[in-house]
Amino acid sequence: MTSNSKSEQLSTHSVRQLINEKRSSKSLVHVMGKIIPGILFVFAFVSVFTTVGIIYTLFSETIEFFQRVSFVDFFTGTTLRPLSQNPEFGILPLINGTLLSTLIAILVAGPIGIMAAIYLSEYASERLRKKLKPMLEVLAGIPTIVYGFFAFTFVTPIIRAVWPSVEATNILSPGIVMGIMIIPMVASLSEDAMNSVPNSMREGALALGATKLEVTFKVIIPAAISGIIASFVLAISRAIGETMIVTIASGSSKNVGFDVTESMQTMTAFIVEVSSGDAAAGTTIYYSIYAVAMTLFVMTLCMNLLARYISRKFREEY
């Protein structure tokens, strides 16, 4: 009986009316459909808030810092003595340390990473590649604090055994270990670039009688060069921002120069040093970490944007 009366009731409505009724109903499903996109949008916007938050905090405190220390003194000063009676805030020692450790890292990771990429992309069989690549990427998954421990308690003693004038904390050992850490980054990204070179080009060169080595250097690398350079730039950016390895293994001397046997401090290590020794909020030294972090942020951002620009602009399309 009930079903009969229901169908009678329904028959008085056209389908169009039913749809309209459904649309205007305030059922849960309907309300959800209206609210959910808004909530999701807010979630997606969290990332924008994060960026705004980073830029705002760094910017406002950096401005505070530059009211105490002149802009020119900060960027051209070659001495950093934040704790002395006449404190001096020159960032150059930190930039020196950062660039030197990054240079050592890229000297290690660049050649090894690209050669590993060549092997994986051009020489290894598909089966071997599928095994080796994830194993190599484990290196990138090891926490940096573990690399710091490794550099300090294993690599440094070995270096000192063969080169006694190296100090217990030096820039060389963390530089090398940082290089090992970023090998997978260079290898993986370069390999992706080489792998995306179409096979027809490889086969064409092989058919002309070239060896695999010649194919690699005369065909594959020129074709994949934008991806390879981009991987280098990203690796450099990663090395600049790396913190724990240099903090542990390179000490806190603010030396300037190219002597890799000495302890040097990077920008990141300075931030750690200041923030782990209770710098009271409001002191110049407290604000100095924001100025240093701002410099660090701008440097890594530029490198990342450069990497994106290179891989977009110079990509060869086949």
Partner: peptide
């Protein structure tokens, strides 16, 4: 938003530390 997420992935972790501190 997409570009922003890509750029955030490249920000050094210590900078997030400073954001968290502040």
């Amino acid at each position: 938003i997409q570009t922003n997420i890509a750029n955030l992935a490249g920000v050094p972790s210590i900078v997030y530390g400073i954001l968290g501190l502040t």
